[in-house]
Design a protein around this nucleic acid. Structure first.
Length: 279
DNA sequence: CTCAGTGTTCAGTG
DNA sequence: TCACTGAACACTGA
């Protein structure tokens, strides 16, 4: 379930386990898709004995800075996640009491990293749309080099945001999802931002007024910041967010704040919006 | 059995 | 070449 806030939670979890520690052992599943052709042997060789200096994130990409290249880069896709034993990976409020029968390593584990101090970090990926890659200079190579601004680390200025939006004829919803424009936004964040900004998601980016664009920019910054502050724990998202009604089946008869929620396909993605509030 | 899905990429179109 | 669209990818869970 990874958009920027969930990925940032993953980054923090990984940092807590890995930062400053030496990688003692690596176990990789053979998966040509997720590892983009790299063999388990190559991964073992690249990581074992190295120390993790830092864990960084831009958009939905996470990478470890090791003491020497290549550096591992993780992308969760639609279903990926970091896990650590004992459900310590879940947000506090959502953490069930420890289950002694919990399967470990979890189903769909792709890589297990064992650190000094008996720490373990696992990445799972059920639907194999995630990627685990090695990069010599992660920041300056794809996929990271192709990313646009990260709304948490570097929200664009009003003028620059306006300038870039004014050259795009695509629907505002599609633009927000474009990782080369804005890194880390996914389907729920885009819908939430447009709902809070009061903008019809189908409207072309270049046709929003300056005042409307500024509302979008501000809500983008605010939604992401708040979601990260509560560690992507949805139960702590404000109760008036569209988020709480956008999921699941039975799309008819849903409301937020008494207003009807509609669903429409935009750029191939289901978009939830509220005609009464979004013009 | 069918279909949608918190993501990305790439071929095809104008 | 550019901007944009839609299908494909892979597989689970409803």
């Amino acid at each position: 379930m990874p958009e920027l806030p969930e990925v940032e939670r993953g980054r923090r979890m990984a940092a807590a386990v890995a930062r400053g520690r030496r990688i003692e052992r690596v176990i990789c599943k053979r998966d040509v898709i997720v590892f983009d052709g790299a063999s388990p042997r190559r991964w073992k060789h690249a990581l074992e004995g190295k120390t993790v200096q830092n864990v960084s994130r831009i958009g939905k990409q996470i990478w470890f800075e090791l003491d020497s290249p290549p550096h591992p880069l993780f992308h969760f896709g639609m279903t990926g996640a970091f896990r650590v034993p004992g459900r310590r990976d879940l947000p506090l409020a959502a953490r069930p009491s420890p289950d002694p029968n919990e399967a470990w390593p979890p189903r769909f584990t792709k890589i297990r990293l064992f650190f000094e101090g008996s720490e373990e970090l696992v990445m799972t990926n059920a639907r194999r749309l995630g990627r685990i890659l090695l990069r010599g200079d992660p920041l300056h190579e794809p996929p990271i080099s192709r990313l646009g601004f990260d709304p948490l680390l570097g929200l664009l200025s009003k003028a620059e945001f306006r300038r870039r939006c004014s050259q795009r004829k695509t629907p505002m919803k599609s633009l927000l999802l474009d990782q080369s424009f804005c890194a880390g936004v996914g389907n729920w964040i885009a819908d939430e931002v447009l709902y809070q900004a009061g903008i019809d998601p189908r409207r072309r980016a270049d046709q929003l007024s300056l005042e409307e664009l500024e509302r979008v920019r501000r809500r983008l910054g605010a939604v992401v910041k708040l979601a990260v502050r509560v560690d992507a724990d949805k139960s702590r998202f404000p109760s008036d967010w569209l988020f709480h009604v956008r999921w699941g089946k039975k799309k008819d008869a849903r409301t937020v704040e008494g207003n009807r929620v509609e669903f429409v396909q935009i750029g191939g993605r289901t978009s939830a919006w509220v005609p009464r509030r979004q013009k």
